[in-house]
Simulated assay, not measured.
Amino acid sequence: MTTANPPRLLTPDEVGACIRQFRQMRHWSQEQLAEISGLNVRTVQRVEQGDSASFDTRRALARAFELNDIDALNKPFSLPTDEELKAAQEQFERDHVTLAVTPLTTGRQLASLVTSCEMDLSEPAIELPREAAAEFASLVDYYREYRECHDLYSETDKLEIYDDLQRHIDTLRVLGVSLTYGQRGVALRMGSGLPMSATCLYVVAFRLGQEPSQIVTPKAARIG
């Protein structure tokens, strides 16, 4: 059994190793971590290489990984043992699922996806500028309304829906945002009743040109 390491200030190399481990555990690229933390990619690369990181940079990284204490990397820190790292990785994988995602480029494609899934979890993977955030929210509101009453539309009417969805997608691309989607079977539990099977659509916004091929999402979620 490995003895726990006593708390101490981490060296730059150790901070870099921790950041790399935390990032890889979540299946994030350096570009994704940069977006989530608000840092530039070169800063993330330098930190992982063992270069000295400022107080604010360490805070930004701790916040990105949702550490309980955003100053955890600026204080004496107990490095996890190999056994603790392995246990944390296994726990993370039990609590999360990795989904393949595909570029979402046309309004017709989005309409078909929306009507083939009973629910969706749609959100930006990055902090969007105000204009792009409003456009993404408008798109989500639009296709959720369409899903609720799509069977009332004629085939001719649906062509207008496809065009409207396409305009939202195109506007987001002009604003530097692209969309990806993934699908996943889920079990919905309503109160104390038996779980019901459903298909969940994930529509995720990324910076144009930085779309991943996979995302990691919690296995369980509370639907409000």
Rank of each mutant, 00 (worst) to 15 (best):
G176Q: 06
V177E: 02
V177C: 00
V177N: 02
V177H: 08
S178V: 03
S178D: 10
S178Y: 05
L179N: 06
L179V: 03
L179K: 04
T180C: 06
Y181K: 01
G182K: 04
G182I: 06
G182T: 05
Q183R: 07
Q183S: 00
Q183V: 04
R184G: 07
R184P: 06
G185W: 14
G185Y: 10
V186W: 08
V186Q: 10
V186H: 11
A187P: 08
A187R: 08
A187N: 11
R189T: 14
R189I: 13
R189W: 07
S192R: 15
G193K: 04
G193H: 05
L194H: 13
L194C: 09
P195V: 09
M196G: 01
M196L: 07
S197Y: 13
S197H: 15
S197D: 05
A198I: 00
A198L: 01
C200Q: 11
C200Y: 07
L201H: 15
V203M: 11
V204N: 14
A205D: 01
A205M: 04
F206D: 14
F206V: 09
F206S: 12
F206M: 13
R207C: 12
R207G: 11
L208E: 01
G209A: 04
Q210M: 13
P212N: 01
P212F: 02
P212Y: 03
P212G: 02
Q214F: 07
Q214N: 06
Q214H: 13
I215M: 07
I215Y: 10
I215K: 08
I215H: 05
I215S: 04
I215R: 02
V216E: 01
V216T: 08
T217L: 02
P218C: 08
K219Q: 14
K219W: 05
